[in-house]
Each structure stands twice: as structure tokens, then as C-alpha cells.
């Protein structure tokens, strides 16, 4: 019986074996491309990826499949791509986490600086500071004063260790030199629910998630963490206008291939990315998300490489000072 079973197994393996073309850099791409999103479907990174993939697929003439490999702040999906064949058929679209997990996780199975061949920056979604509707302060200066005076009763919500809202909170507290009580949530959705219900006082979130509530007056907004005001919320001042310097930061997204991917392939991908970012449809959808594509000179391997390096250096001291790690 066992022998027969083995015979069958061998047969199955043989049947499944048939020739497939070996990837050549010159005729890349001649097969379906997978882009790994290291988060679950439906989130902001997933949305950004699907919009860009749709357009890149037309340029490259190949189907692009978006694969959601969620887990451990995105590091599981990133680790998968770091180990993948460097042939340009497995790519990664990861956000600012690429830089922050370098410090947040003390045991990362890959080195964010060397494990990937950067393709280009995609977009930068700014963060906004929002509060429950009936929170007393009306602008950023009032917020800073109020928070300092009531530091024992004010609560700041975040979406869990390592989340953008967590980084934003660390940055803000270090800037005003006042540690506050933070209430962590599992994702920004439930945090926003409790903010709307008045259970917690204030938080930061991406414009992507908050523009609707801000416009409807369901939450108070204090400022956007960007150098310029965002198009979707023209009345909202920047944090800098509100008097806090050096806090501007956004959730930037980058496209990566595994390290060792041939330069020709990376350049082809980068060109396709530039085309996608100039696509009027992508620009329109991005605007509705409260963001815009990066300028063409940023959608390059060099720009992304520099961004990863500078962001790792920027967040290292912030995270180490706060002493909060994800492992």
C-alpha cells in the first residue's frame, strides 16, 4: 500500500512538472507580478497599492496581483519579500513602517537598509491631530496649554505600538515635553469610535481616515503634520502654522524589490511607477484620499533609498527615548 502511495505521489509530482520560461531581465516582465502588501485588505496601504498596481499593470503589459500578507506591523510580509527570488516578480509596497520597525523590533529577520532594492516613493499621506467634538481647546496653542495643565486627566488614543498614531503621539509629547496617559487600540477604527463617543480626548490619524469626520464636524481638528495645507482640507492650518516646529511627518509609501534584483528590472519598474503616478485617474483618487502622488523625481530608487536611511535615523532616537518597542 505504502509503495503504491509513493508511486502515486511521484506521478503527481511529475504531472505537475512542466516547462516554464526562465525569467530574463531583457524581456521582463513576461509573467504575472505579485505585489505584497504587508497589511490586511481594505486599509490605506492596500488602497494605495491597488490604485498604483492597476495603472502599472497597463504600462508593463502584465497582470499584477496584490497579495495581502499581514502580521507583526508589516514585518512578516516584508520578510517574505526580502527572501523572495530577486527576479522582479515579487515586490513589496510598505509604508513608513519600513523605517520605524528597524528600531521598534529588536529582532528583525532582515535589514531594512540592505535587504531590498528600492524602486521608488509612491505617496506621502499627512497626519492630522483631532479631538472629540466637545474637547475644550479650539486651536493648537490652546491644545498645548490645556494638555500641559491637565496632563493627569487628558487621554491620548493610539492604534497600538508602532502605529502611525503612536509615533505621532511620541513626537508630540516629546515636543511639548509632557508625557500623557495613552490609551492603545487595535487599529484606528476602534480608536476613532471611542473618540467620537467621547471616551478618549484626542489622537492623530491619517487624513485618509479622518477627512469625512472633520468635514462633518464630528471631530475637532487642530492641524495637519505637513509643510503645506492639504487640498482636501483647505481651512485646516499646518502644525507649523500653529507654532510647533519640526513635527511635520506623513505616512510615506515606497515600492521595493528584493535586494539583488537586476538594475534593468528595477528601472523598468520605476518608470512604470512614474507613469502610474502621473495617471490622472490615480491623481484624482489620491486627492479623494487626502493625499497626492510624490513628484516624479521622488519615484526613483535613489530617492527611496535616501528616504529609508533618513527616516531610520529620524525615528531611532524618538522611539529609544520613549523606550517603547514592539517585541
Amino acid at each position: 500500500m505504502i509503495k503504491r502511495l509513493l508511486g502515486l505521489l511521484a506521478g503527481v509530482v511529475l504531472v505537475g512538472t512542466f516547462a516554464s520560461p526562465i525569467a530574463q531581465a531583457q524581456d521582463y516582465p513576461n509573467d504575472t507580478i505579485n505585489i505584497v502588501v504587508p497589511f490586511s485588505a481594505g486599509g490605506p496601504t492596500d488602497t494605495v497599492t491597488r490604485l498604483v498596481a492597476e495603472s502599472m499593470s497597463k504600462t508593463l503589459g502584465q497582470q499584477i496581483i496584490v497579495e495581502n500578507v499581514g502580521g507583526a506591523g508589516g514585518t512578516l510580509g516584508a520578510a517574505r519579500v526580502a527572501k523572495a527570488e530577486p527576479d522582479g516578480y515579487t515586490l513589496l509596497l510598505y509604508h513608513i513602517g519600513m523605517a520605524t520597525t528597524a528600531t521598534l523590533y529588536r529582532k528583525l529577520p532582515y535589514d531594512p537598509k540592505t535587504a531590498f532594492a528600492p524602486v521608488g516613493l509612491v505617496t506621502e499621506v499627512p497626519m492630522v491631530m483631532i479631538a472629540r467634538k466637545d474637547f475644550p481647546p479650539n486651536n493648537l496653542q490652546e491644545l498645548v496649554t490645556y494638555v500641559k495643565e491637565n496632563k493627569d486627566t487628558v487621554t491620548y488614543a493610539n492604534a497600538g505600538v508602532g502605529a502611525a498614531s503612536h509615533l505621532c503621539g511620541m513626537l508630540f509629547m516629546q515636543a511639548i515635553e509632557t508625557p500623557l496617559t495613552t490609551v492603545p487600540y487595535k487599529g484606528t477604527g476602534p480608536a476613532l469610535t471611542d473618540l467620537l463617543g467621547g471616551q478618549v480626548d484626542f489622537m492623530c490619524d491619517q487624513t485618509t481616515n479622518t477627512t469625512g469626520q472633520i468635514k462633518a464636524g464630528e471631530v475637532k481638528a487642530y492641524g495637519v503634520f505637513a509643510d503645506q495645507r492639504v487640498e482636501a482640507l483647505p481651512d485646516l492650518p499646518t502644525i507649523k502654522e500653529g507654532g510647533l516646529e519640526g513635527l511635520s511627518f506623513g505616512i510615506w509609501h515606497g515600492l521595493y524589490a528584493p535586494a539583488g534584483t537586476p538594475d534593468e528590472v528595477v528601472n523598468k519598474l520605476s518608470e512604470a511607477l512614474k507613469v502610474a503616478l502621473a495617471d490622472p485617474n490615480v491623481i484624482k483618487r489620491f486627492a479623494e484620499l487626502g493625499t497626492e502622488p510624490v513628484p516624479a523625481d521622488q519615484a526613483t530608487p535613489e530617492a527611496l533609498k535616501a528616504k529609508v536611511a533618513s527616516e531610520i535615523d529620524r525615528w531611532k532616537p524618538v522611539i529609544e527615548t520613549a523606550g517603547e518597542y514592539a517585541d
Binding site: G42, L51, G189, K215, A216
Partner: peptide, 20 residues
């Protein structure tokens, strides 16, 4: 999670989910 996806679908379609 399914509702999170529905929100994602609205966003992709250019509708900002929210009270309005």
C-alpha cells in the same frame, strides 16, 4: 473586518465614508 473592506471599497470609489 468585512466592514473595513466595505469602507476600503468606498474609498477606492472616491466616496469618503463618514456621517455625511
Amino acid at each position: 473586518p468585512v466592514m473595513a473592506l466595505m469602507i476600503g471599497a468606498m474609498i477606492i470609489q472616491g466616496i469618503t465614508p463618514g456621517p455625511n
